[in-house]
Structure formats: C-alpha cells, structure tokens
C-alpha cells in the first residue's frame, strides 16, 4: 500500500540495505526457548565464513553464558533458517548454506531441566 504523503514522489531510502555493512550480511541468531537471552542476537558476518566458524566463534562466544550451554548435544540440535527447517553444512560458507542479508537462524536443543521447562 502507498504511504500517505503530501507528495506523490515521497520515498524512504532503505537504511539497512546490504550495501551499508561493508560486505557483511546481518544474521540474527536465537536459541529457542532460552529467554535467558531475551531476544535473538544480531551479528554482521562475512558471508564467506564457514558455518563451523560461526558455531565456534559467534554462537560459542555469545550463548555460552547460559549454564546449560556446555551440555548441548550438537548432533541432535534442530536448526531453522528464516523459519524453514535447515541442515547446515559445517565446512561450507554462510552464503553456500543459503544465508542472506537479515536472515534469521534459530536452533532448538532438548535439555531437560526446570529452567528449560520455564523457557529460561
């Protein structure tokens, strides 16, 4: 729908278009049902980065504060990319894995604890 504007040529220049991040793409990452981290986190990442490096250096350093992080069985983790089921290929890059600008990566783990029941 058209924006209600005084002038027919009114337009907004997209503030967060892909060209504004020095070659990086924005990736949002969330650990589902772990509201200890109150929301997904945003990262500007090099699309050539292998997924394994993201797991180690991005997820590994930003979600490890949760006391149950160390117990994650990564073999059973369920991933989704832009809310579609997704199976990452560890040694392939983000771009090769289908990541694009402002995409949403979510992972679901299956630990069983009172904190997990509460979604913490």
């Amino acid at each position: 729908m058209a924006t209600l504007a005084l002038r027919a040529d009114y337009h907004g220049d997209r503030k967060d278009s892909a060209d504004k991040f020095g070659g990086a793409i924005l990736v949002y990452i969330n650990w589902d049902k772990h509201l200890f981290f109150y929301s997904a986190k945003a990262f500007p990442l090099d699309p050539n980065m292998p997924f394994a490096a993201v797991l180690e250096h991005v997820i590994g350093t930003h979600f490890c504060q949760h006391p149950e992080y160390k117990d994650i069985d990564w073999g059973t983790v369920e991933w989704s990319l832009n809310n579609e089921p997704f199976q990452p290929v560890m040694d392939k890059s983000l771009a090769e894995n289908g990541f694009d600008h402002k995409c949403l990566l979510r992972f679901k783990t299956a630990e069983k604890s009172a904190f997990a029941d509460a979604g913490v």
Binding site: A2, L4, H11
Partner: peptide, 9 residues
C-alpha cells in the same frame, strides 16, 4: 506494510 516507505528508513 501499510506504509513501507515510511518505515524502511
């Protein structure tokens, strides 16, 4: 979605 041109910036 009603006024995307307003919120893209």
């Amino acid at each position: 979605e009603n006024e995307p041109e307003k919120y893209v910036h």
